[in-house]
Design a protein around this nucleic acid. Structure first.
Length: 834
RNA sequence: GCCGAAGUGGCGGAAUGGCAGACGCGAUGGAUUCAAAAUCCAUUGGGGUAACACCCGUGUGGGUUCGACUCCCACCUUCGGCACCA
């Protein structure tokens, strides 16, 4: 038989492997991409006899120009998973589309004079090309583009349904404003007080805005037990919703504002006897009424200053707490005390009631505030060993009620309930639940989005556009001025319309919808892509949704993923869908970095196209999946990619060897050895692929590839079992490296696409070994190894272990205390000196 | 500050109570070549030995266990999230 060296030599190699060409990805990848598309092999019919439907969805991209390396990482893994599920025998829906509304298109317009529509659609064209080059198995017949009127029409439709059912409303209030992007933002889109998109410090601005009533679902959104999601994401959602139970209590101010009370919310009603002041947020409506003439100048200045400050300044925990007295006082209903009312910007208008009762002894913030303004610090919950001395810090934990009238001596845990009871029975307040979650602000003062289908009429007021008039189309060829305002506010042909009710001239709403509205229901449209007259076809939706496996980045934890859940619940209550949750299982791909840092076009570039050109799409796909566990991300390095290229080349080589060099039957040992690794490989790959562990799947396949080469070179295996091994290798490689697997599948004489085949099965009995190696430890330290029959009994194994030479040495002069036998793995002999 | 994840060779990582370092990169030596590239073979945690033996080794310190990368406690570092939420 040929030795390795000989089989590699030019003359013989050609002979033994039959004029095999070198692995050149460029020669095969485009060919298969075209063929797959022409044959429509990835199109998912709504029903296939004998197959279960499986919706594997990956978050669709914003078409910013390029499918970058991070996208490759995300989409290679999710595509491999969808392909794997298809080969598991499921009827898999794996669609793709474009989340194509959004600010970058407008910024391109403003900065470069590009037309947002042209800019967007040419980017989409480019992205489609790149997706194709990736060899992704998308069902392109279901592609959706959210900036197409036949998609955003339904955004408008949903808005109208929500509006009719009290889930969409317009309200004048303080909104987060990004001065750079010239638009308001939802709370979720403000990170560290800055615009999530551009990083500009967010300010507050009072203006009427549209909201979706997500808070109505706050409690239901907290129920996540049924979701197979990463715990981390669930925790983030729970924290964001931020449910806290407490008591609202009113502090009478009728002395200064007849009939008025300051409502405050507290989770620590047990400390209410320790209230020595009340602080209002600078935006609190009662400030004007309460401020006394001699304090007015100071209060006005303070409030004005607070309004000017950015969210970053306002919410910094570092900065000193400030406040100013109003001159007014209020009454603590529990003890009738008269206490000062101040204004302070550490109190947030947007949370609770916008006013807090100040209990410096038992709240860290109130404590520093009281110290600074020399306000009384009265202990009402005593620490266990308190000697009556002044506090150096607020005491937050529970304790014993003191200075609390009739509640003295009670534990503060009981006090909390007893005091709340008293407050409720006297009508001073009520037990209340508050949430950090705010209603979803959906108005954007931008052009490139879904127009909100509302008309304002002088006579009829706010009038929804009738459904049959949808879509309200976004005008084309608009003008962008340097003032940064949305072109819609100046486009008279858009702006001026007739009132749907009375027919008189009226004005259109010029705000557009937050683009997260588009992604809140796109999975439904993928399932039901075609209806014209209705948003969805119920049968199609129920055939596919909820999404069985959803993949995407963790950065969407409290934005897209929360909005989408809300949308689902709202649509359920409006009888459009029947299920409670949109995405059953969620997997977060990790982040791909380069040199440990974020990949960025400017500072840390890593364009995929040159890599594809040099190594091919299959190599890049596999390399990205080989970097590490997919859900943990990875760090790109140029050097490692050769290893994957070598592996694929070895597959290319081994699969095309001339099997006629092998005999009709092989040696028993070699046959069993090959069967063992073949079946063991399948076992490993099936288990790992199912949990997105592509890296270890590839490692298993690399080992199998080597084993196949060795079997061939040894010449001891039959042509048939070697051939079967090659098939198995190709089938497992298919989801990871679809082009080379398909090419070799054809070259090895199969007809039909490998991607329509099923995963091979494995037989556990073939994986089992006849003889096994047992590790033998003495005192838990490895001392020797013994070869024993796999079915050896415990006693026999231990006897054999004691006879191993190196074990004997360590047993000498020792008394055996204990013998531990782990079947198939090891023996541990515990001894002590005799 | 709070919550969460992670820390393993020169590097990416594997092993989740049972032989640490699978697989790959890189490196070293060899084969092939006029030469190089490519490819193939071998070695590759540290110390130690002629070779064995043996000792050390999964961020640090303690603990549980016959046995710990794995479980528990404390700490350090890195990354992610939240952060005046009353």
């Amino acid at each position: 038989m040929t030795t390795t060296g000989k089989s590699r030599s030019g003359a013989e190699g050609g002979e033994s492997r039959g004029n095999v060409d070198r692995y050149t990805p460029a020669d095969i990848e485009k060919k298969w991409q075209t063929k797959w598309e022409a044959d429509g092999i990835y199109q998912a019919p709504d029903h296939v006899e004998g197959k279960e439907n499986y919706f594997s969805l990956v978050m669709f991209p914003y078409p910013s120009g390029d499918i970058h390396m991070g996208h490759w990482f995300q989409y290679s893994g999710s595509d491999a998973y969808a392909r794997f599920k298809r080969m598991q025998g499921y009827n898999v829906l794996h669609p793709q589309g474009f989340d194509s509304f959004g600010l970058p298109a407008e910024n391109a317009a403003i900065e470069r004079g590009a037309d947002p529509r042209e800019w967007t659609y040419s980017n989409i064209e480019n992205s489609r090309r790149q997706f194709r080059e990736m060899g992704a198995s998308y069902d392109w017949s279901r592609e959706l583009v959210t900036s197409d009127p036949d998609y955003y029409k339904w955004n408008q439709y949903w808005f109208l349904q929500f509006y009719k059912n009290g889930l969409a409303y317009r309200e004048n209030g303080q909104a987060n404003w990004c001065p750079k992007d010239q638009t308001t933002l939802a709370n979720e889109q403000v990170k560290d007080g800055a615009c999530e998109r551009c990083g500009t410090a967010v300010t507050r601005r009072a203006m009427p805005q549209w909201f979706f009533a997500i808070t109505k679902y706050a409690d239901e959104l907290l129920e996540m037990d049924s979701l197979d999601w990463p715990e981390k994401i669930k925790t983030m959602q729970r924290n964001w919703i931020g449910r806290s139970t407490g008591t609202t209590i009113g502090f009478d101010v009728s002395e200064f504002a007849p009939g008025e009370k300051i409502e405050t919310f507290t989770t620590r009603i047990d400390t209410v006897f320790g209230v020595t002041f009340v602080v209002l947020a600078p935006e609190h409506p009662l400030i004007e009424k309460l401020t006394q003439p001699d304090h007015k100048a100071a209060v006005d200045a303070y409030v004005e200053n607070a309004a000017r400050e950015t969210e970053i300044d306002r919410t910094s925990t570092e900065r000193e707490k400030t406040g100013v007295a109003t001159g007014a006082h209020c009454i603590n209903p529990l003890n009738g005390e008269r206490i000062p009312v101040l204004v302070g910007d550490y109190v947030l208008a947007s949370y609770g009631t916008g006013a807090v009762m100040g209990v410096p002894a038992h709240d860290a913030r109130d404590f520093v505030f009281a110290k600074k303004y020399d306000l009384e610090i009265r202990v009402v919950v005593s620490p266990p060993d308190w000697d009556g001395r002044e506090f150096e810090d607020a005491w937050i934990p529970a304790g014993t009620q003191v200075n609390s009238g009739e509640f003295n001596g009670m534990s503060s845990i009981d006090g909390k309930e007893a005091i709340a009871d008293k407050i409720e029975s006297n009508g001073w307040g009520t037990r209340t639940i508050t949430y950090h979650l705010r209603d979803w602000l959906i108005s954007r003062q931008r052009y490139w989005g879904t127009p909100i289908p509302i008309v304002y009429c002088d006579d009829c007021g706010t009038v929804p556009v009738p459904e049959h008039e949808l879509p309200v189309r976004l005008p084309d060829k608009v003008r962008f001025d340097s003032d940064g305002r949305s072109p819609l506010t100046k486009d008279t042909s858009f702006l001026n319309t007739e009132c749907p009710d009375c027919g008189k001239p009226a004005k259109r709403e010029t705000d557009t919808l937050d683009t997260f509205v588009c992604s809140s229901w796109y999975h439904l449209r993928f399932a039901s892509p075609n209806p014209d007259e209705d948003p969805l076809e119920v049968d199609q939706v129920s055939a596919w949704v909820p999404v069985a496996a959803y993949q995407g980045g963790a950065e969407h934890a409290v934005m897209h993923l929360l909005y989408s859940r809300f949308f689902n619940k709202a649509l359920r209550d409006l009888k459009f869908v029947e299920f409670d949750e949109p995405y059953t299982k969620l997997t977060n791909q990790g982040m791909l970095t380069k040199d440990g840092g974020k990949i960025s076009k400017r500072s840390n570039p890593l364009p995929p196209d040159p890599v594809v050109e040099k190594h091919g799409a299959d190599t890049l796909r596999c390399y990205l999946m080989f970097l590490g566990p997919w859900d943990q991300g990875g760090d790109w390095s140029d050097s490692g990619i050769n290893g994957i290229k070598r592996w694929l080349s070895r597959i290319w080589d081994v699969a095309q060897r001339d099997k006629s060099k092998l005999g009709a039957s092989g040696s028993e040992d070699a046959e069993r050895g090959l069967a063992r690794i073949a079946h063991a490989t399948t076992q490993r790959v099936l288990a790992d692929m199912d949990v997105f562990k592509f890296n270890t799947s590839i490692a298993a396949l690399m080992e199998f590839t080597t084993a196949l080469m060795r079997s061939y070179e040894s010449g001891d295996v039959s042509a048939a079992s070697w051939r079967a091994g090659i098939d198995r290798l190709l089938l497992h490689t298919a989801p990871l490296a679809p082009h080379i697997a398909e090419e070799l599948w054809q070259r090895t004489g199969h007809t039909g696409s490998i991607h329509l085949e099923l995963n091979p099965a494995f037989d556990e009995s073939l994986i089992a070994m006849d003889t096994i190696t047992l590790a033998v430890q003495v005192q838990g330290k490895l001392r020797d190894q013994i070869e024993v029959p796999a079915d050896i009994a415990q006693d026999a194994a231990i006897e054999a272990a004691k006879e191993a030479p190196n074990v004997m040495r360590h047993l000498e002069g020792m008394l055996i205390v204990k013998e531990i036998y782990v079947p198939g793995r090891l023996i541990n002999i515990v001894v002590r000196p005799a």
